[in-house]
């Protein structure tokens, strides 16, 4: 077919920022489908809970401290996370490097406490359905923690190489920060499920 050139796109940037970046949308869409996974798992929890004569059943309630500590750590990490996102927006390489190091530490710390949190549930996954579903909720969230911490570590290493100073990388850092917010926020309803008072 014959063509008639009617637009010149040579002035466009080589990589779009924010909503002009496909990876931004990809992250968003991933959050949607994983969010529906979380929602379904919580629905399973509520369903089993509605059938149970008592809740928690067949086990003492979980110890609270590890869960509280994880929550505090995760919420606290939102502040440096926000800063890293802004610095990446300004393409400030030095600050982004520092910020990612901090975020790596702040990602690993709750993971360590998470180990103790499993023990503090006071029930095993194979004791009864209550044990199964709260282990599954915690494991599901932990998987997301691990993957995002892994992502943060790799990005952090990347920023110290020659590939670091690149607009594309800064975009990755911003998307990673957005995903971290998702990981923190999805924890809150799960926290309520695991530790919320029994009248909830």
């Amino acid at each position: 077919m014959r063509e008639r050139v009617c637009a010149d796109l040579s002035g466009l940037p080589l990589h779009g920022k924010g909503t002009a970046s496909p990876t931004f949308w990809g992250t968003l869409v991933f959050m949607l489908l994983e969010g529906s996974g979380f929602a379904l798992m919580i629905a399973v929890y509520l369903y089993l809970r509605s059938l149970a004569p008592a809740w928690p059943f067949g086990a003492p309630p979980p110890d609270l401290w590890p869960g509280i500590l994880v929550t505090v750590l995760l919420l606290a990490s939102l502040v440096p996370n926000y800063c890293v996102k802004r610095w990446a927006g300004h393409e400030d390489l030095r600050k982004v490097r520092i910020g990612l190091v901090i975020m790596s530490v702040l990602g690993i710390a709750p993971l360590i406490v998470r180990g103790f949190e499993f023990a503090a549930l006071n029930v095993s996954w194979d004791s009864n359905a209550y044990g199964s579903v709260i282990w599954m909720l915690l494991a599901l969230h932990t998987t997301h923690l691990i993957t995002d911490v892994g992502d943060t570590l790799v990005l952090c290493a990347l920023m110290f190489t020659r590939h670091g100073p690149n607009r594309r990388r800064f975009g990755d850092v911003e998307d990673n920060a957005m995903y971290w917010v998702f990981v923190v926020l999805t924890w809150l309803p799960i926290y309520v499920c695991l530790y919320g008072p029994s009248w909830l």
Partner: peptide, 18 residues
């Protein structure tokens, strides 16, 4: 798979599953 492999009880009515 978890019910079958590691003994969770999601679908086992005897242990509060459904």
């Amino acid at each position: 798979i978890l019910d079958r492999l590691v003994g969770t009880h999601f679908f086992n009515p005897a242990e509060g599953g459904d």
